[in-house]
């Protein structure tokens, strides 16, 4: 194996490790499923440089996520690890993978629509855009009904809201599209 190929395989190995690191607050999905891991590359002087993006400005899990990334890579013998937080471009739920959306649904969390970015930046359009108060109908992750209502705009974590299905009557969480 050439040196270049060995380095590339280290990056591949790192991605494979990170694909198994769960989100601390939504453990059904991995950090890679959520699109939080933006880049993995070789750090100058050896080791890996991992770029993460936070989901919300005040997400209390940000530090735990960085620590779990470093721990997992160190345990796999891929250290030393340097973690960088990058704000731009801002994280969007559009980055959640198809596999991640499936896992969320199976876990009982309604995934976000994949159109958060297309939802418009509002302010840039000026007066033409009204403030959209009510969310679009969210599909119940248990029975698939669209007859659902929002109970609470904010939920157990910054990224979720609480809804209820009017057909199967079960409450469920919705991953807010942003």
């Amino acid at each position: 194996m050439t040196a270049g190929a060995a380095l590339a395989s280290r990056i591949d190995a790192a991605w494979a490790v990170l694909a198994g690191v769960p989100d601390p607050e939504v453990p059904a999905v991995s950090l890679c499923d959520l699109g939080i891991v933006r880049d993995v590359r070789h750090a100058e002087g050896g080791g890996l440089h991992v770029v993460l993006t936070p989901t919300y400005s005040g997400c209390p899990a940000t530090e735990v996520i960085a620590a779990s990334v470093a721990d997992a890579l160190l345990a796999a013998g891929l250290g030393p690890v340097r973690v960088e937080h990058r704000l731009a471009p801002a994280w969007t739920t559009d980055w959640i993978s198809a596999d991640g959306r499936r896992k969320l649904r199976e876990y009982g969390i309604a995934p976000p629509s994949g159109l958060a970015a297309a939802g418009g930046s509002g302010a840039a359009d000026g007066a033409a855009v009204a403030i959209r108060i009510r969310p679009r109908a969210v599909e119940c992750p248990r029975c698939g009904s669209l007859q659902t209502e929002r109970l609470s705009a904010f939920g157990s974590t910054a990224c979720k809201a609480l809804h209820r299905c009017l057909d199967c009557l079960e409450p469920f969480e919705h991953f807010k599209p942003i």
Partner: peptide, 17 residues
Amino acid sequence: AAIAGKALKEARYHQRH
């Protein structure tokens, strides 16, 4: 600008609520 990109989404949600 990067801080604003993140905060804008949050402010929009707060305003709706």
